[in-house]
Write a protein that binds this DNA or RNA. Structure first.
Length: 489
RNA sequence: CGGGGUAUGGCCCAGUCCGGUUAAGGCGCCUGCUUUGGGAGCAGGAGACCGCAGGUUCGAAUCCUGCUACCCCGACCA
């Protein structure tokens, strides 16, 4: 088989870059750091959106849309928030172009904006400025809103899906009357994300909270789900924030309680982005290409006819037409690849590269025997089955593949999670990769020093982590719980 | 923003050191024939102001100057 991908062993990040391009998911654009998401890649994102959107609505949220542009003055109202994002903001300063004396298009300096506009890196500020107008009484609460949007963070170094200057995401922004309710909301959405990652993406994730160093700018507490990629590096797959009353204070959002008292509103925000595409790719795929979980695959079953003459294709088409309908009735997406411009071998390789979970091949031999060749992408196994009742077997096989993909990723994480108790051991393990459960004294200084010396950061402090007395890996100071360290994307 | 590298048909790239007149090859593309159960073969064909702007020269992809873009490594980050 002709090799089109760099192998993972040879160069993991090159493998990833090759795969994104070759599987037709996305490509670099004319704009530095911004990508074009191609139809096949976007189809996966759309499936993710559809599932998540339903999950959000099932938990009581509604969609809305807020502006792309945020007045600079709004942005500077919450001190730690602005500090966190200031260095990566795109700023709009003018609203008109003109021809200069040489006929070149230039910015019209006369069209300077009174107040500069920030291109949103996230929407807390514009949303909380709006919520002030929406909220007067406890009767107006809670507000449970989500928006699907693009945001811009002017990153210095970018990678397709994992970090781009502009990316797509959803951001939920909720307002509550009590602290407990807001905390519960942040935790609920974390569970939604974890459920989505595991059940649909087949990516096992650790759930926990972020250390202060890794916390979202403006949050009181940041919750996260963390996945482990095949190269042993961690990838944050989603975050949910308990924002306390920070934004309510900054934007003066108060409400009157039943007891007629003025109080500040409690807030949360939560988001997942097209970065999930990166997690999906890096969790399951192999040296032959993408491996997609059936629940998110744009095409779940591809049928490749094997034929010499048009009459043969016609006979095969008649035979598989019924099967295609039966599969569609089951809600299974099928592609009949009847192109006569490519040979079967080419198609096999191409659909493997694109990660289609199941491939059926039907040729003259099968027509004679009433059979079909079934190949599954995750294990690359092939078997010949009778056409009779094949649709039930395919439905079942898709479920099996979904389970197997998750199990494989789970086992990988399990085999790459380590408990480490000495600094020497820790440094050695960081080099090898994986999740490292170690004791930490709870201070930002120690975390920073560990990061400076090893590049490993605290990915999460597990929520369901067992409390256990121990000594900090770095300082030897007492610790009550192991936290998870790893090198991260 | 530091350090390194690259720029030549749609893509990968040779040629650049040492200047010389049809800019080589592979992939892909088009046409035809033969093929089709794991990325087909043969024959023919189209496609390039050699990143941009100057300069040196009889002559520049090649030498000089300036610029721009992209990639890799760091600092920053979902």
């Amino acid at each position: 088989m002709a090799k089109v991908l760099t192998s993972r062993e040879e160069n993991y990040s090159q493998w990833y870059n090759d795969l994104v391009i070759k599987a037709d998911l996305a490509e670099n654009s004319a704009v530095r750091g911004s990508m074009v998401i191609k139809p096949y890649g976007y189809a996966i994102w759309e499936k993710m959106q559809a599932v998540l959107d339903k999950m959000f609505k099932d938990t009581g949220h509604q969609n809305a849309y807020f502006p792309l542009f945020i007045p600079k003055s709004f942005f500077s109202k919450e001190a730690s928030h602005v500090e966190g994002f200031a260095k990566e903001c795109a700023v709009v300063t003018h609203y008109r172009l003109k021809n200069d004396e040489n006929g070149k298009i230039v910015v019209d300096e006369d069209a300077k904006l009174e107040e500069e506009l920030i291109v949103r890196p996230t929407s807390e500020t514009i949303i909380w400025d709006t919520y002030r107008k929406w909220i007067q009484s406890y009767r107006d609460l809670p507000i449970l809103i989500n928006q699907w949007a693009n945001v811009v963070r002017w990153e210095m170094r970018t990678r397709l899906f994992l970090r781009t200057a502009e990316f797509l995401w959803q951001e939920g922004h909720t307002a509550h009357a009590t602290k407990d309710e807001a905390v519960a909301e942040a935790e609920t959405m974390l569970k939604v994300y974890a459920n989505f990652a595991e059940t649909y993406m087949g990516v096992p994730v650790l759930q926990g909270i972020k250390s202060p160093n890794e916390r979202f700018a403006g949050a009181v507490e940041t919750y996260c789900i963390e996945g482990l990629m095949q190269d042993g590096k961690a990838l944050q797959c989603g975050t949910s924030h308990f924002l306390g009353q920070n934004f309510a204070k900054a934007f003066d959002v108060t409400f009157v309680t039943k007891e007629n008292k003025q109080e500040l509103v409690w807030a949360t925000s939560w988001g997942v982005s097209t970065r999930l595409m990166g997690a999906l790719i890096m969790s399951h795929s192999d040296d032959n290409g993408l491996v997609l979980p059936p629940k998110l695959a744009p095409i779940q079953v591809v049928i490749v006819p094997i034929f010499r003459k048009e009459e043969e294709l016609k006979a095969i088409t008649e035979k598989v037409d019924g099967l295609i309908n039966k599969l569609k009735e089951k809600g299974i997406s099928v592609k009949f690849d009847n192109r006569d411009t490519h040979k079967p071998g080419f198609k096999f390789a191409e659909w493997e590269l694109k990660g289609v979970p199941i491939r059926l091949a039907v040729g003259p031999r099968d027509l004679a025997n009433g059979t079909v060749e079934v190949a599954r992408r995750d294990t690359m196994e092939k078997e010949i089955l009778h056409m009779e009742g094949i649709e039930d077997k395919i439905e079942h096989l898709l479920e099996q593949i979904q389970i197997n993909i998750y199990q494989k990723a789970y086992d990988f994480r399990d085999n790459n999670s380590f408990r480490v108790d000495t600094w020497e051991e820790f440094k050695a393990q960081v080099e090898k990769g994986g999740f490292i459960y170690a004791h930490w004294d709870g201070t930002s200084e120690t975390e920073q020093k560990i990061k400076d010396e090893t590049k490993a950061t605290i990915r999460t402090i597990p929520i369901d982590g067992k409390f256990e007395e121990g000594k900090c890996i770095y300082t030897g100071n007492p610790s009550k719980q192991r936290v998870v360290f790893a090198k991260a994307y």
